[in-house]
Design a protein around this nucleic acid. Sequence first.
DNA 1: GCTCAATAATTTCCTTCGTCAAGTATTGAT
DNA 2: ATCAATACTTGACGAAGGAAATTATTGAGC
Lengths: 373, 373
Amino acid sequence: MLPEAESAAPAMTAVLTAVLTEGPLSRVTLARRLGLSQAAVTKAARPLIELGYLQELAATERSGPGAGRPASPLAIRADREFFVGVKITADELIGVLCDLGAQVRKSIHRPLLDKDVDYVLTELGHLVDDLIDDRSRTRRLGLAVSGDVDRATGLVRYSPFLHWRDVPLRELAEKATGLTVTVENDVKALTTAEHWFGEGVGAESFALVTVGTGIGCGLVVNGRLVSGSHGVAGEIGHIGVDVNGPACHCGGRGCVEAIAGTDAIVSRAGLSFDDAVNAARAGDVRVSAVFAAAGEAIGCGIAAVANLVGPAHIVVSGEGLAAYDLFETHIRAGFERQAFGAAAQCPLSVRPLPFEEWARGAATVSIQAFVAS
Amino acid sequence: MLPEAESAAPAMTAVLTAVLTEGPLSRVTLARRLGLSQAAVTKAARPLIELGYLQELAATERSGPGAGRPASPLAIRADREFFVGVKITADELIGVLCDLGAQVRKSIHRPLLDKDVDYVLTELGHLVDDLIDDRSRTRRLGLAVSGDVDRATGLVRYSPFLHWRDVPLRELAEKATGLTVTVENDVKALTTAEHWFGEGVGAESFALVTVGTGIGCGLVVNGRLVSGSHGVAGEIGHIGVDVNGPACHCGGRGCVEAIAGTDAIVSRAGLSFDDAVNAARAGDVRVSAVFAAAGEAIGCGIAAVANLVGPAHIVVSGEGLAAYDLFETHIRAGFERQAFGAAAQCPLSVRPLPFEEWARGAATVSIQAFVAS
DNA sequence: GCTCAATAATTTCCTTCGTCAAGTATTGAT
DNA sequence: ATCAATACTTGACGAAGGAAATTATTGAGC
């Protein structure tokens, strides 16, 4: 985050991260929370204030019995730096401009007529130009792509929807936009957003489940995102919950996705997705049963997550959840049945996230990279 | 590990850990592997040699084109310090004496006639006395207990088999034995052993599955053991793999344990476990199918682990695996069918571990605590 | 208003840890 | 014997954070 230095002192990163994710905090509070001395916090905060990332709020917090000098909380100056986040799907680019506090300031969609890498990069360049108001304060771009992505190198190993294989996306996007780029898998990016700026704040472990065409999951364990050794992690969609269930395109049987994915629901209901939703809402017993089975399967998959890694909190979201009124009770039922012992106490938030949230996730990853730099 | 200091320098811990887990290493190699300067390694190693934990081996390693000073690898002196590990089961104590290199030097079983805490502690005292030869070089004891254990405080929150609830085991055992005690869940202890001294060495992520009466799983992600926020983690046994499967005592349906646990096999085969094994080995089709279904269920559960956290390596083990010839192919079949994409590449070792291994796991945890101290 | 207790923030000094760069040690090849 | 190559050690230095004293800012009691 310092203009010159390659990497700032750990205390500086820790202070900035804490203020960013947990809101205004006084130096004493920060010291206690981070296990540092007050002196260390003072020293770490000074350059952050000088560089304009933090500011001192008016003394408001009162502590103790009443007496004592009031604390002056440190807050971020959200407009000090902006970040572009773009989710790349097969048929459009969804872009947002976020401030340092990860608030969305601007949001633009741009259709894609082709999956060709060069074409996408050109369109990306236009999108970024349209989003950025102040180039001097916007230096970073985060990209979110579905599939197997190596965040460290910015390489897209394989993205089935885009038909991309071994595309050095970071390098290419840096050339195309002139920004410092981070690339991450879309679900992981969304998980990061929720971990730093959403319901997962402060949780040592945390899971996010997305429901839609595919069913995915991002995991945070011991405060760190789980990436998976073989490029696979969070594939909740291909957990088998019914040995006698339908065959899945992955070769498995009774996968969550083969029961609860959008395509599965369409083929099982024999209707388009929207018609199925309407039929179920109108009380059609057969179609309702399809949604019920889907919700149960998802709940069962979520219970597997809870049983295995025991996250402190689970958020269920995704496009498919537009119809979440049809899913929710069944998801909870499946979860509660299959969660073992205390794992059933794990709070489950079921709520749809706006579609820009994916792009915001991408921006969040670039904020993280910025803070850590 | 220093007699006086509360906590040694991080570099010292890192050096000792690396030599302990990866065998003799020269200072240059250590420097490269740990991201330290050679000077730092020299400085960290000196006190460790002086205290007798490390020793310099004769120069043997030759590197490069031939010329150059030969490296003198650092190796641990395994007999510098001994550790007692005890696994507490409902009907016996299994104790081992390990050296610093986690080699078992001595192993004793001691039957338990009662589950009363005081009684168990008295027996533990006798066991420890029988195991220890040299009190001056044996200062630590690790305990492994099944159930919900808080390693940080040494509190056994709930152990179903022992009928213990909120037993401050560390405190009590320290009083009873005069040793510094660590308490850990049995599966996690075994996982730790395998991570530091077994097949999981060097892996950033790693999973161990135990098959027996219960079916459990220990996970290491990002180099750290997963503990679970609500005291639950690694409960692979209660992942649901068959919505129409048998009801499980946990309230779920089609849990891995309800299909593949020892009790499940006994009741499904209608024979004692040993008889069932013999029948299956003799070619009894019906009983073989029971084992096949059990293996498939386990494989399916393991695939869920691979899909979710993507460990670099998975080891399958446990008492029940005495009959692993009957399980192995089916475990692999279930795993390969249900593992998604590259997750199927995750190497799977299926092998029984000797029963003392559990006690060795307990000792390993105390070695870890010693090294980190 | 003055003083005191309580709490927050800063300053100064100091320790610790690890790096850098130069020097020493030990080998094989010529 | 000399040199190149590699391993290890040494000592000066610097960065980072801690301890404790100091300063700052408030409310309460008088």
